[in-house]
Amino acid sequence: MTTITSTRVRVGPRRRLVVKGRHVKGMTVIGVALVSCYLLLAIFGPMFTVDPLQRTGDPLAGPSAAHWFGTDHLGRDLFSRVAAGARVSVLVAVISVGIGLVFALPLGVCAGYFAGRWPDELIMRVFEAIQTVPLFVFAMVVLGITGVSSFHLGPIEVSAAGKIILLIAIAATPYFARVARAATLAEIQEDYISALRLLGVSRRRVIMDELMVNVLPPVIVQSCLWMAVAVFAEGALGFLGVGVQPPTPTLGGVIADATRYMMAGAWWYCVMPGLVLLVATVGFGLLGDGANDLLDRGER
């Protein structure tokens, strides 16, 4: 008996985002734990704490059972202020990274698909220009000048937080797009894409169905890192006094207040909000590394 197998078009292999039966490194577990702590604090913290704007204790009192993180110079509970600040920080980070992704993914995949031709040239030149501007400085100037007030983009009113979100999203977009473009370029060369094209599947379908799924892993890694950057940027802008404005507490704003009372020995005032920032940036960093390792090995 003879067996002659016809050459079938093999589609895939698709990289799985969830990789089964693979040991996850300890560092990644720590990353997940830290990010969870931060998210839990931001989501549930403000629900169970006292009003962060009201005086509930003595000014500059150290950590105690009543005030876990101590109190600030006005006797407000630091834990509730930090929790409220964490919520602002999460919102800014998630929304800005989300907006960045929404813009960057289609553009990056498009640039990669048309690599070397005019859509690619156009998209990448614009992003290059954005990347040559010192964006943190620019953000500071923009926020400093336009100030606390909201401004109008046509019919849409953009609040101070909205401005921060937009600026971070603009900064992140070129990086996301670059990663998406590179991943698309690599994917395009894979045989199954050309096989699909040979089968007569339309361009648009190839991009939508196959590419998006395969480009996502490296973009997820990049998103984790940009979550950390966004958390830092929101904190830094708040620290300089051009972030989300009082009375809303922000992590950076609390640290800025704290620097004025440090010489009074109120170490907790400065340490606690920064620790929350640190938990978030280290956590997202480790998560990004972990995702990288996991997806990298999944490729082989």
Binding site: T3, I4, T5
Partner: peptide, 21 residues
Amino acid sequence: EGTAAGANRLPGCAFAPRCPR
């Protein structure tokens, strides 16, 4: 005809899936 992909998944001769004999 065929490819060598998966040749080592099966017991027996690796060329068997493509072998006319």
